[in-house]
């Protein structure tokens, strides 16, 4: 009995040993497990996306895709590690608006260049943000909110998930377009900020995780920040419909180190697009109000470039610094 199990096991171990020694060429990539680096701790949205994708992607590529959390310093540690990793297609980064859009403008001595050090593979998601108000503000439409912002801006205390987060920058953006200035109250992440909104400690908050609370009725959604209406909240108008020229979505994408073999990059993009088309995957992500994007690597590269520019201006406007 023991021999029956042990012998094949030893065989497998020895086999894999021999395999990993040989350097895999591009034609037969992937030959060994692929490490998908998530630059945040387990439990966040990015981690959730990584773990949702890892299994179908493994099936697609025929090799395990292992999620590794390398959290720290707003995602810069994990991103830095991938930027320095071998560009052999076995180390990939699940990046987001922070690692490739905001951080370069906030951190002076960033350990990586978001454009030069990476090859964008595919845009995975787009997360529409929702402008929500809690019981503290007596408004139920965007128009009322705008009137309040004009007449008594000092009444608008707004929450964010921290300084320089998409939630913060998008509110600053809205403030500049509407021409008012509320009081910014930063919280340590989305969920305490959301609680504060529901509990009435603050009046308003722009965030992508409020859909359940909106459905429950504890938060009123006034507008969404995406170009199109959000799938999860089809009745909530977009800001542009309301006459405010603002589009701001959070996003996630797959990146490889810069010098990756173009053939491998292409293979990855294909595989990812297939995975993102699976109804099960879509359904899971849409359940947490994340919209699946996909598309070509070039589209994603262009998108990252424009994002970096817009976000740079926003960061400057919001006067975010870490010093």
């Amino acid at each position: 009995m023991f021999k029956r199990i042990a012998l094949p096991l030893v065989g497998i171990l020895l086999g894999s040993l021999a395999f990993s020694g040989a350097q895999a060429g591009q034609g037969d990539w992937p030959q060994k497990p692929i490490h998908l680096i998530v630059p945040y701790s387990p439990g966040g949205n990015v981690d959730l996306i990584g773990r949702t994708l890892s299994e179908p992607l493994s099936k697609e590529l025929g090799q395990p895709v292992v999620v590794e959390n390398r959290a720290g310093a707003g995602g810069t540690i994990g991103s830095g590690e991938v930027s320095r990793a071998n560009a052999d297609g076995y180390t990939l980064l699940l990046g987001d608006i922070a690692t490739h859009g905001i951080n370069p403008h906030v951190y002076d001595d960033l350990a990586y260049d978001p454009v030069a050090d990476f090859t964008p593979i595919v845009q995975i998601t787009s997360v529409p943000l929702v402008l929500g108000v809690g019981p503290r503000l007596d408004v139920s439409t965007f128009e009322e909110f705008r009137e309040l912002a004009e007449s008594r801006p000092e009444d608008i205390d707004y929450a964010s998930a921290g300084i320089g987060t998409p939630q913060h920058l998008s509110f600053e953006y809205l403030e500049s377009l509407l021409g008012f200035e509320g009081l910014h109250i930063p919280y340590q992440g989305s969920s305490p900020a959301r609680t504060a909104l529901i509990g009435g400690e603050v009046g308003a908050f722009i965030d992508g995780t409020m859909v359940p609370a909106v459905r429950e009725g504890s938060i009123k959604a006034l507008a969404v920040t995406s170009a199109e209406r959000a799938q999860a909240l089809p009745d909530v108008p977009t800001l542009s419909e309301l006459g405010v020229d603002m589009v701001f979505t959070s996003w996630h994408g797959l990146f490889a180190p810069a010098d990756i073999d173009p053939a491998i990059a292409e293979r990855l993009n294909e595989a990812m697009n297939k995975v993102l088309d699976e109804p099960a995957v879509r359904q899971r992500l849409e359940a947490v109000s994340i919209e699946v994007i996909g598309g070509t690597a070039d589209e994603f590269a262009t998108f990252v470039d424009t994002q970096s520019e817009t976000l740079g201006e926003l960061v400057e406007m919001a006067d975010v610094s870490t010093h």
């Binding site: 359940p212 459905r215 504890s218 899971r284 359940a287 947490v288």
Partner: peptide, 13 residues
């Protein structure tokens, strides 16, 4: 996260 992926919204309801 697991709850929400299964389509259940945590909240007072």
């Amino acid at each position: 996260g697991a709850l929400m992926i299964h389509g259940i919204d945590p909240g007072p309801g």
